[in-house]
Every structure is written in C-alpha cells, then in structure tokens.
C-alpha cells in the first residue's frame, strides 16, 4: 500500500471523437504536496482535471483519489475534494456571502464552522460581501471561488488555472494563499500556463500536447538543463531575433521579456565575436550568461 499518494494517475488517456487530448499520462501527488501541472493551452490539463474530479470518463487508464477510483467510486470522491474550474463558476446574480453560504449548505456545513480555513482569503473580500459576484474584479472572483471550494474543508484541492486572466498582484497573493493552505496539510493539484508560477510548487509536471514531458521539483528541472544559456539584448529586439537565427553557431533563440535567451551549438559563445557579427545592425548590445528557468527547460523539452 503506497498510502502516501493521495492522487494517482496511471497511463491515463482521453479522446474526444477523433482528437486525443490526453495521451497516456502518469503522475502521483503525495499527501500535503503542492503539485503543479504546467503547460500551454490545449495541453490536456483541463481534461485530466475533469477526469480526476469525476466529471469525465477516462478513455483508458486509471485514476484514483484517496485510493477511490474516479469512475466506480465517484460519489466518495465528490464529498472530499474542492474543485475550482477554469471558468468562473459561481452564481453571478448572488452576492458574495450568498454564494459562500450556498456552497456551505450544499456540503452540509456552515460558513462559521470552517471560517478559520478561509479566513485569510475571505477577509480580503469580506468588505464586499453584499456585492453581486458578477460585479467583482477578476482577482476577487478567484478569491471567492477559492473560498467556496474550501468551505467544506476538503482534503484535496483541485484548481484548474486559477490565476489565468488575473493581474500580477492578485496572482502573487493567490499563490501565497495556496502555500498557506498547503501548510495546513491540504493536498493541492494546480494547473497553470504561467511558467514563473512553477517555482512556487513542490513538484511540477511539464505537460505538452497530452503528454507529460518531465516531473520533478522546479529546482531539479532547471538543474537538468544541460547546457549553457545566455541572454541577449539590443536596441532593436525584433531585428535581433532574425539576425541571431542567421548566425551559424547559435542554436535556439527565444524571447523572454526584454531579453532573448540563446543557446549555442558548441555550448560556447565568444562574446566579442557575437557582438562583432551583430554590430552593423545593432547598438548597445548586452550579453550575459545566465541560469535556465522553467520556461527554458520547457522549450528545450518541447524540441526534443
């Protein structure tokens, strides 16, 4: 009995008509772990989450939560998980407090009973508790949705892209809350398309096109990036992309904010040689060697 795993997914596949959205996925989440499924839109994250929350049948393979099978024992699972779908799924014509009370009642509890658990989150939206949920800002909606998903004190939280479409400050606050919840012993499975959020997870699975490319701690994943990496910048960043791609020893070029991340075929770059090559078209060129982040790893794994 490997009881320490709360969520176990084995060779899970899911097809819609002719499209195979999930192509054999394996992962497991331990008790009290914050596990992130990181990948772009259409990678299959929502399908996996909906299978885990017993909303969809798997086409093949098996998934269990607390050892209960998501197909056969779906009723037992539904009592003990908190689920936050990707779309805002609360009643927009009910107020904040009405939504919360409704979900508390549905799960046979009261807001007061579990107030401690949601206090940190709910206190931030409590001043607006009589406002209709549809009139809240994006960040506040997510906080309310999280409060509603938590109101029955579930052992597992499954959050499907909770920070998509939310401003940077709210995103940061949201992740701080998740980390506090994890400290209270709640197992959390979260998906996100934002690579920078990966570092906040205990472990992450990088998923692309229905397949998990790697699962590890964020630290190990970046450490596995087996080559040197540089960031480059100049006055004309758009021109720089095309120019860099034409240099024979440059391997990959990806834009990251105001910099371009590049690798070399020889794993070495001569600072002066590169600058000399770019000189005719560019001024104030900057070149630094850096450590890879999750997104670099994702790009590299994608191209393998």
């Amino acid at each position: 009995m490997d009881n320490e795993y709360i969520i176990e997914v084995k060779d899970l596949k899911k097809s819609y008509d002719k499209v195979e959205a999930v192509k054999g996925v394996n992962f497991s989440v331990s008790k009290g772990e914050l596990f992130g499924l990181i990948g772009p839109d259409g990678a299959g994250k929502t399908s996996i989450f909906r299978i885990l929350t017993t909303l969809l049948y798997p086409s093949s393979g098996e998934a269990t939560i607390f050892g209960y099978n998501v197909v056969a024992d779906y009723k037992k699972i539904r009592n003990n998980i908190g689920y936050m779908p990707q779309r805002f799924s609360l009643y927009q014509d009910l107020s904040v407090i009405e939504n919360l009370e409704f979900f508390a009642q549905v799960f046979g509890t009261t807001v007061e009973q579990n107030y401690d658990l949601i206090k940190d989150i709910y206190s931030q939206i409590e001043p607006f508790k009589n406002r209709l949920a549809g009139k809240l800002s994006g960040g506040m909606k997510q906080k309310l949705a999280l409060s509603c998903a938590l109101i029955h004190s579930p052992d597992v939280l499954i959050l499907d892209e909770p920070t998509t479409g939310v401003d940077a400050v709210s995103r940061k606050e949201f992740w701080e809350m998740l980390i506090r919840l994890k400290q209270k012993g709640i197992t959390i499975l979260v998906s996100t398309p934002y690579m920078d959020e990966a570092n906040l997870c205990d472990r992450v699975g990088l998923i692309q096109d229905g397949k998990i490319m790697t699962i590890n701690t964020p630290h190990h994943i970046t450490a596995q990036f087996g080559r040197k990496l540089w960031e480059v910048k100049s006055d004309n960043i758009y021109r720089l992309i095309t120019d860099l791609k034409q240099i024979d020893f440059v391997d990959t070029v990806y834009p990251f904010g105001e910099f371009l991340h590049i690798t070399s075929k020889t794993n070495e770059i001569d600072d002066n040689k590169l600058k000399a090559l770019l000189q005719p078209n560019h001024t104030s060129i900057k070149l630094n060697q850096i450590n890879a982040n999750i997104e670099d790893c994702f790009m590299e794994l994608m191209n393998k």
């Binding site: 909303l55 009723k75 998980i81 689920y83 805002f88 799924s89 549905v106 799960f107 509603c148």
Partner: peptide, 13 residues
C-alpha cells in the same frame, strides 16, 4: 451554460 453545473456535480448534491 454558466459552468455552475460543473461545481454542483462535484458536490454531494
């Protein structure tokens, strides 16, 4: 349509 059915289904109702 509003997606609330998804949440209702994943509840003891």
């Amino acid at each position: 349509e509003m997606g609330t059915m998804e949440v209702l289904l994943v509840s003891p109702l």
